[in-house]
Simulated scan of single mutants.
Amino acid sequence: MQIGLPVLREALRGINGTILAYGQTGSGKTHSLLHQSAKGEEAGLLPRLVASLFLMISQDVANVYDVEAAAVQVYNEQVDDLLNPDHQNGQGNNLNVRDGGIVTGLNWIRCMKPDEMLEAFTRARANVVYAETKMNKASSRSHAIFQLRISKRERVFEAAKTGQKVECTIARLNVVDLAGSERVKKSGSEGMRFQEATNINRSLLAFGNVVSALAARKSHVPLRDSKLTRILDGSIGGNCRTCLLVCVNSAFEHVGETLNTLEFASRAMRVEVDAKVNTALVEVSAKNLLADLNPEAHEFGKKVMADKKEIEALRKQSAEAAEQAKKEAEKREKVPLRAFRMPSLLKAMASNPTAVASNLMAAASNLE
């Protein structure tokens, strides 16, 4: 969660985020990202992100959130909607991808609770293509992208009779389970598996070329060479916080693939991003504005306003006290120090009371 939490916090501010798992087949990418477990410490990154997201939302009563989930896979250079209700019958397949990685016709599911989102992602994962190879009993044969869209706007604490336009932040958070690169001789892929492996390696090569171009700051970045890189347009080297989770196999026989993976990660570290907060004006209906005024939020709103007034009053008092202290300090600087040295004062009064009285009168006139 040390990888995912900073990206999630930025997404709640309105900054796009992407977390990619990269490595050879069988190195643990899918388990690290997607594994669901009743024991929290064994859960993958995506379930932890979902739980943390709704926990943070529940603690932020000052804002209203709208959270949606979607999922796609890139299988044999074809983009498929994993949450289409008729996915098994071929619906939602071969979708188009626009600039910025926007998939047209994609199903977005609004989620009010973490269980709803986890259930949606579980259904999506069930539609991902897996197959057994010599290197992995459940090898991903496609690249899977799980998406969260988070909208946030300030809660309205005064009743509104009509709808109004309000500014909100909109961020998209992608969790990308890349299919692992594989050598056909090691995996033993034949027939359909061989075709899948060829397309996987081809798309990973295109992804590597994009990263290399971004790291070298080339003017042309070949994002159109693959459906995978088309979807990741905007997620790498653009307006996005991007993290790379590198998975390697510790076995000596895979040292070549491990070195290639680490070299790729080294290039990716040189890619610069320019992430910004994404804002938009949205029309909020009177009904939704009225829903903002639930008892808990209303009480919170009154408390916020009261706290603001109290803080402002304290600031004013502090400024006045500082100004008064400054004036007192200036007055003290004008008073002869000898007038406040008590041992000397007492001694002087005993010997010459007239002179002491004259000094005290002079000090008093300086204080006025």
Rank of each mutant, 00 (worst) to 15 (best):
V271K: 00
V277W: 01
F252M: 10
I236P: 07
C243F: 06
G234C: 10
E272W: 01
K302E: 09
I311K: 07
L314C: 09
S285C: 00
R270D: 11
T242F: 01
M269S: 14
S250N: 10
K287C: 08
M305H: 04
N249C: 09
E263N: 12
E263P: 15
R267T: 08
L259M: 08
V246K: 06
A313I: 07
M305S: 06
V248Q: 06
D233V: 06
D274L: 09
R230C: 03
A251F: 03
T279I: 13
F252E: 11
E272D: 07
E283W: 11
C243H: 15
G256M: 11
V246S: 09
E283T: 14
V246G: 13
D292Y: 03
D233Y: 02
N278V: 01
K276C: 05
H298P: 13
V282I: 06
E312G: 08
S266D: 13
L314W: 07
G237R: 00
H298A: 05
K227S: 13
L289I: 04
G237Y: 01
C247M: 15
L262Q: 08
S266N: 04
M305K: 14
A322I: 12
K309L: 15
T258N: 05
A322K: 07
C243L: 14
K309F: 06
H254E: 05
G301K: 02
G238P: 10
S235D: 12
V304P: 05
L281F: 02
A322F: 06
E310P: 14
K316V: 05
G238W: 03
K309V: 09
G238M: 03
N288R: 02
L245I: 04
A268E: 01
N294R: 10
F264P: 15
E283R: 12
A286T: 01
D274W: 11
K309Q: 06
M305T: 08
S250K: 10
E310N: 11
L314K: 06
M269P: 14
D233P: 11
D292P: 08
V248P: 02
R315I: 04
V271P: 10
N249L: 15
T261V: 01
T261P: 03
R267W: 03
F264A: 00
L290S: 07
L289M: 11
E320M: 08
K308A: 12
R230Y: 00
S250H: 10
T242D: 05
L244D: 02
E257Q: 09
L262N: 07
P295M: 00
S266F: 04
E257H: 05
S318K: 15
R267V: 08
A297P: 01
L245F: 04
E310L: 11
L281R: 03
R315A: 02
K303I: 04
A275G: 08
N260Y: 06
E253G: 07
A268Y: 02
A319Q: 10
D292N: 06
E310D: 05
K227L: 13
K287P: 05
V304E: 03
S235K: 02
S226I: 07
R270S: 05
L245Q: 04
